[in-house]
Design a protein around this nucleic acid. Structure first.
Length: 420
DNA sequence: TCTGGGGTCCTAGGACCC
DNA sequence: TCTGGGGTCCTAGGACCC
């Protein structure tokens, strides 16, 4: 048996937690740059405002209904997420943190000893009491079914936020009620293709021939079919896999026109990415940088390009990567475009410092003293101050817009909530 | 004027090996 | 007329997830 615990309207609920005055006010959380809507409170969903809608198109309706906007505040959400996960780990010993707002619990054998309906309620109430965030709980024999049970708990008010699929009959009933695109692993493209061959509900998919589905789609969909029929193919993964790539990319708050600004942006993203690399305790060899104009600005000349470069020896020293990134940028930079976005991707990771050098390669890469990066990270994580690389620039006119940012209530001393 | 960011996995096809 | 079989590695592209 698996449980899936998923926070309701997670980002919106996080913001509301520290603003009890907004308990019944419709609120939304915006993507980076305050561009799109990425989380909505129940009142906003009721207004039929969809996910990922650009906010500038909704100005009118936002004003009309007094919707309160928040820029995304990831330090806050990450901290509250950690609190939710801690609470779950006290309730079950095997927990897989699946995303920032949801986790699978392994409840193998639980059903023999306790009432899982009561347990689901206990999870819901404990998280609400300990952290203050509302969650829904779905329990079922496989992860895919637990996801669907959770979906049911969110969809139907009468469930009180918990659904336990304790019998084949209940499973069948729910499968018949939900459309196939709601199934975990079935996205837009695949559900359209499924519709074309007469598969509309989750039940239709469960009844399909698994081998045929594999042929038509992939091994993943074959597994999904089995999971829908109660055969677990996906195990709980307690230890997170080591990362294979690190991406740092952003849209600019205003279009970038000059080379110098672009270079600063690329270097800043590189600095961030390599910081993350050191947090992962990894070294890497490959960096890809990319830049693009906005395909939505139809009157602009369009240009997009990317380029990949490789160090000779894996490194976690920022200087190696900013140097390489700057060289790469000269090759794909073109004057005369209105750039909207740039990004950096790090890949080809090595977890040991020991590296087999190439006998025939002329090795020119500098050997760096690792202490500098260590000190740098210590200062930047100390909360006392920040140091940065000159290559990142000082003005950063392109850096993202966060007009409605809430305080970091739980992670910064000066932002602590005050109670009068 | 203004439209997010960060990931994973699978497959097909090409190059190559014996 | 008929031209093997089995395998690895890499990359690009596509699909999915939150």
């Amino acid at each position: 048996m698996f449980a899936l615990v998923d926070c309701n309207n997670f980002y919106a609920s996080c913001e509301r937690l520290f603003r009890p005055d907004l308990k019944h006010t419709p609120i939304v959380v915006l993507s980076n740059n305050d561009g799109c809507i990425i989380a909505r409170s129940a009142e906003v969903k009721a207004l039929n405002i969809k996910m990922a809608q650009p906010v500038f198109k909704l100005r009118h309706i936002i004003q009309q209904h007094g919707i309160v906007c928040f820029s995304s505040n990831y330090p806050l959400y990450a901290d509250l997420s950690a609190r939710v996960m801690c609470t779950l780990e006290e309730l079950a010993c095997e927990v897989e943190v699946y995303s920032i707002d949801e986790a699978f619990l392994n409840l193998k054998g639980f059903e023999k000893n306790i009432d899982l309906n009561a347990f689901a309620l206990q999870i819901k109430n404990t998280v609400l009491k300990n952290v203050g965030l509302p969650v829904c709980v779905g329990i079922a024999p496989t992860k895919t079914l637990a996801k669907l049970a959770n979906h049911g708990a969110k969809m139907y008010k009468a469930t009180n936020g918990v659904v336990y699929l304790d019998s084949p009959l209940r499973i069948k009933k729910l499968l018949a009620l939900v459309t196939v695109d709601k199934v975990w692993g079935v996205g837009r493209k695949i559900s359209k293709k499924l519709n074309d061959i007469g598969i509309y509900s989750a039940l239709d998919l469960a009844n399909a021939n698994p081998k045929h589905m594999r042929k038509l789609f992939s091994v993943n969909i074959e597994k999904t079919v089995s999971e829908l029929n109660g055969t677990a193919c996906l195990a709980l993964e307690e230890v997170p896999n080591t990362k294979q790539q690190i991406i740092c990319s952003r849209s600019f708050s205003e279009r970038v026109l000059d080379y110098q600004s672009m270079r600063e942006a690329i270097c800043s993203y590189t600095v961030r990415a390599i910081e993350k690399l050191r947090l992962e305790k990894q070294h890497a060899k490959v960096i890809t940088i990319s830049l693009r104009t906005s395909s939505l600005s139809i009157h602009d000349k369009q240009y997009a390009n990317s380029i990949t470069g490789k160090l000779q020896i894996p490194s976690d020293d920022t200087r190696d990567f900013t140097e390489l990134a700057s060289q790469l940028l000269t090759k794909i930079w073109r004057d005369g475009y209105r750039y909207a976005k740039a990004g950096v991707m790090i890949s080809d990771f090595y977890d040991q410092v020991i590296h087999q050098k190439d006998l025939f390669e002329d090795n020119t890469q500098k050997t760096r003293n690792p202490n500098l990066m260590k000190v740098l990270d210590e200062i930047n994580q100390s909360g006392i101050g920040k140091v940065s690389f000159a290559a990142e620039g000082l003005q950063k006119g392109w850096s993202m817009r966060q007009q409605f940012l809430s305080p970091a209530y739980t992670t910064r001393w000066k932002d602590l909530a005050k109670v009068w």
